[in-house]
Write a protein that binds this DNA or RNA. Structure first.
Lengths: 338, 338
DNA sequence: GGACAATCTGTTATGGATAACAAGCATAAG
DNA sequence: CTTATGCTTGTTATCCATAACAGATTGTCC
């Protein structure tokens, strides 16, 4: 029996059908100028008739360009990850590129493996949306021959960096709470490995220090709503806590849930600020005051930065940071009187 | 100046360095059995020394297998999309495949373009996580030579279908509400284009009919929290509404928000059930009763199904549906007395 | 008319790997 | 000792498209 999924016709078949050489077919399909109209038509007809589609693998081999961008994200399902991936895909498509995605855990082994897969896959450039930390040097070795952009700050020297200014994010949020009259602001931080999380924490601390406020010990989450919940159960038991900056909206949902269960009203008793402005933030109960940073936009800009680097490998490769904005909703208010 | 990103060494370079033929290098790297240990070692040393990495593009060209799976999702950022994509990536990786992702809008043009890109990219198989509707026939034409799996029911004949049994989902949810004593259940449905949404609605209706309940007119959303909110503002104004089945958790968040704003308490005045069980569902206010369906698992199963098809193109290609489960949380309760 | 440019098309080499075949050699079997 | 067998390695053809070069044709200008 004949195989169900077989290879399609090749360029030479089209050439034969149209009575021209393969090179001419190639020229027609690549919109080269010097092809006679009659020939072009004949070729196109043959293409139609045979249902021919150009083999991009062969193209990639001979041109050395796969027109593919690799994206490395973490194997989690947080809003930021998917949102960024979406931005990458959209921008890549507009530029005529497709996207190869790989995911990884945070271990050095997993990260280097993941990058390795992308390199082997022959991508033209790589976007790394994960904190590399100790994996940084090994990864840099792997990507030595390929343009690379990072979206988490830790990447360090040598690679492109595109993202949102996390310092501004934390400062905006902390100041918002202080301006409302809170004595100080507590913080549920993100995981240690993330430099975005580290920067937010540092900036929160600095802002408090500059305002002459007491600096409470920070609590740690792992970006999950559940970790927010756990930390919320602790914070809710301390009457002196009136303002909390949570390092992500998803954790903030958990914090709010825990506070509610402990009978602390939001924002009357406790104000909560998140970071990210995920789609659901406006529809939490109460709606969440947060810092808007568009991951989709970050993804887009990462692609553009990468393409620029692909086009001109010797370009100046400066970090590119965007300013986030404060979105005030109902989860923040002045502290309770007394 | 030398180019910064140049091509790496080829197999023949390794061969030369090790004093063997390219074919032997290929054998070593493909773990062929009949290679002498000494030779193998020499080759591996040369590989190490030159930092050689096998060129998958060339491999794909000659073997006709790219070890790549294509995934088509919609260009939205809902939980289901990213969750499924994650499952696909994980399962693909375990099987030694990488993932090529494309997104699309719902138009026929966009859908066929997207599939086209995947085909051109030379993927070994395609997972379509979008409702095709009128695009179905054109898409089927494009994928004639490539194994394909769909995860939204509309796909119809000829392709693999993997997903969650949406009928069961809607029945579970509706019955849960009826069992609590509600006279009937209102429904905020998903968009028309989605057969998953259509099935949920049909099953909701049937369940009500079988129970002899009045069937209220359905309301329509587009999966967004915002659309849930809009519909919630309508439902909240009708005192007779005591139970609502919302076709997705994200819309349910919007519905709950709207009801709260209108002063209707959940679950005391109105019960709300969602579908999906997204991570945040357990941390909404109140926690959301919902139907759990693992998109990640659907993604995984889609990959396995696809790989089976790739391995044996003539296999029987039956639909594969998984049963969802009801997760009862605090957003549902018996109707208010009187 | 002849030289030269511009246009159109074809030929050959190339990219990097693998499949299929062939050959050398050592060992086993008869 | 010879033939058969298996192991190890090399040679050649192939996958499909494009780049670089070359040939043919037409047109242009002096």
């Amino acid at each position: 029996m004949e195989h169900k999924f077989k290879r399609g016709p090749a360029m030479r078949d089209v050439a034969a059908a149209a009575g021209v050489s393969a090179q001419t077919v190639s020229r027609v399909l690549s919109d080269h100028p010097n092809v006679q109209e009659a020939t072009r038509r004949r070729v196109m007809e043959a293409v139609e008739e045979l249902g021919y589609r150009r083999n991009n693998t062969a193209r990639a081999l001979v041109t050395g360009q796969s027109k593919t961008i690799g994206v490395l994200t973490l194997a989690t399902n947080y809003y930021s990850r998917s949102s960024l991936a979406l931005g990458v895909e959209l921008a890549a498509r507009e530029a005529g590129y497709t996207v190869n995605s790989v995911t990884s855990s945070l271990s050095v082994q997993a990260l280097t493996d993941a990058v390795s897969r992308l390199v082997l896959q022959g991508v033209d450039g790589i976007i790394i949306a994960a904190p590399l930390q100790e994996a940084a040097s090994k990864v840099r070795q792997l990507t030595a021959r390929i343009p690379t952009v990072n979206t988490d700050g830790s990447s360090g020297v040598g690679d492109g960096l595109v993202g949102v200014d996390q310092d501004v994010a934390a400062v905006l949020a902390t100041k918002h709470l202080l301006n409302l009259g809170h004595k100080t602001v507590w913080h549920v931080a993100g995981p240690r490995d993330w430099s975005d999380a580290a920067i937010r924490m540092e900036s929160w601390r600095r802002t408090l220090a500059e305002a002459g406020c007491e600096i409470p010990p920070e609590l740690r989450g792992d970006w999950s709503p559940e970790s927010g919940y756990r930390n919320g159960l602790i914070l809710g038991r301390m009457p002196e806590v009136t303002a909390i900056l949570v390092a992500s909206d998803e954790m903030a949902f958990g914090v709010i849930r825990a506070l509610s269960e402990l009978g602390r009203r939001i924002p009357e008793d406790v104000s909560v600020v998140g970071i990210d402005d995920i789609d659901l933030a406006a529809y939490s109960n109460p709606p969440l005051t947060t810092i808007r940073q568009s991951f989709e936009d970050t993804g887009r800009r990462a692609v553009l930065h990468l393409l620029a680097q692909i086009a001109d490998p010797d370009m100046e490769n400066l970090p590119e940071l965007v300013e986030p904005t404060l979105v005030v909703r109902a989860s923040t208010a002045p502290p309770p009187a007394g």
